[in-house]
């Protein structure tokens, strides 16, 4: 190996840091000008980091489970009483639900209503978050290999948490509903008024462009409206927690800082996010052209 001479080494040593600083600044500007520029690099790096993050996040998972267990033991007696009461109530609701379900089926048959899209779920584990207050995303340990695709909804048992924005082969990024760039068409259940749920990096996203903002009350349930084809209608999102001049604030049903396992739901909708342009293969050179969104079709 040729070793550079001492003066040359000193020059390299002196000029490298300012050059790198300028390069970093240039990258910031480039990334701002074309936000999709680093998408593939991001996805492949994230894929490579996924196994390490997966392994490192396991002890945290175990710790959270242990804390839950200890808490569970302490509150076992009260929990048992509460659950018994709840169970009694739910059994009554079950009867109601069964009856409604039968009615619903019958009426749908009479109306010849089109059947709803079939749903499929992929259970994923959160392996990383964005660290810092400037973006609100989480990374999950499944990707296109498991059938995930851009735009799919991410939920927990309690409600909506966000949608998939970046897909690697074995990892994916979920843009949380609290992120500055998250805009979700929602409906206020009580008044049936449409609005947009806009994240602003705070814990409680805002309701914008509501049809009748004065009719919104604290405690109103917010569901996805299904407008624009981003999400299916009726996914629970949160409740109105505060009213103010900047719009009503919504407390999400899901505790977003406590995410462990997340369900990714494929409703067979387009997803509302533009797919990256497929590379048009030349006939005779690479076989069939690449199908957009091939990973999402199952």
């Amino acid at each position: 190996m040729i070793r550079p001479s001492a003066p040359l080494r000193a020059t390299i040593q002196r000029t490298t840091p300012p050059l790198l600083i300028l390069l970093a600044a240039a990258i910031i500007l480039l990334g701002k000008a074309d936000q999709s520029m680093f998408d593939s690099l991001r996805a492949s790096l994230t894929d490579n980091a996924a196994p390490a993050l997966n392994a490192l996040s396991r002890p945290l998972d175990a710790a959270a489970t242990a804390v839950d267990r200890v808490r569970g033991v302490v509150t076992m007696y009260q929990d048992n009483l509460r659950l018994e009461r709840e169970n009694e109530r739910l059994l009554q609701w079950q009867q109601v639900a069964l009856k409604l379900s039968a009615d619903n089926r019958e009426l749908r048959g009479l109306l010849k209503a089109a059947p709803e899209n079939a749903m499929s779920y992929v259970t994923t584990r959160v392996i990383a978050n964005s660290g810092g207050g400037y973006v609100r995303t989480v990374m999950v340990n499944a990707g296109s290999d498991q059938g995930l695709a851009r735009g799919q909804a991410a939920i927990t048992g309690d409600g909506l948490i966000g949608r998939l924005t970046e897909i690697g082969s074995r990892s994916a990024r979920v843009l949380l509903i609290t992120d500055l760039n998250s805009r979700i068409p929602v409906v206020i259940q009580r008044t049936n008024a449409n609005a947009i749920l806009a994240g602003d990096n705070s814990e409680r996203p805002r309701l914008l462009y509501a049809n009748d903002p004065d009719a919104i009350k604290i405690g109103d349930r917010i569901l996805t409206s299904g407008e624009g084809g981003v999400f299916p209608p009726g996914l629970p999102v949160g409740t109105v927690a505060a009213l103010g001049s900047g719009g009503a604030r919504v407390e999400p049903f899901v505790e977003l800082s406590q995410l462990g396992y997340v369900l990714v739901v494929d409703y067979g909708l387009s997803g509302g996010l533009p797919q990256p342009a497929p590379v048009a293969a030349r006939p005779g050179r690479r076989g069939k052209p690449a199908a957009p969104d091939e990973a999402g079709v199952r």
Partner: peptide, 12 residues
């Protein structure tokens, strides 16, 4: 890149 934040800002 991995955290999903603005590319280059952390490095800078």
């Amino acid at each position: 890149l991995v955290a999903g934040t603005a590319v280059g800002a952390g490095a800078l």
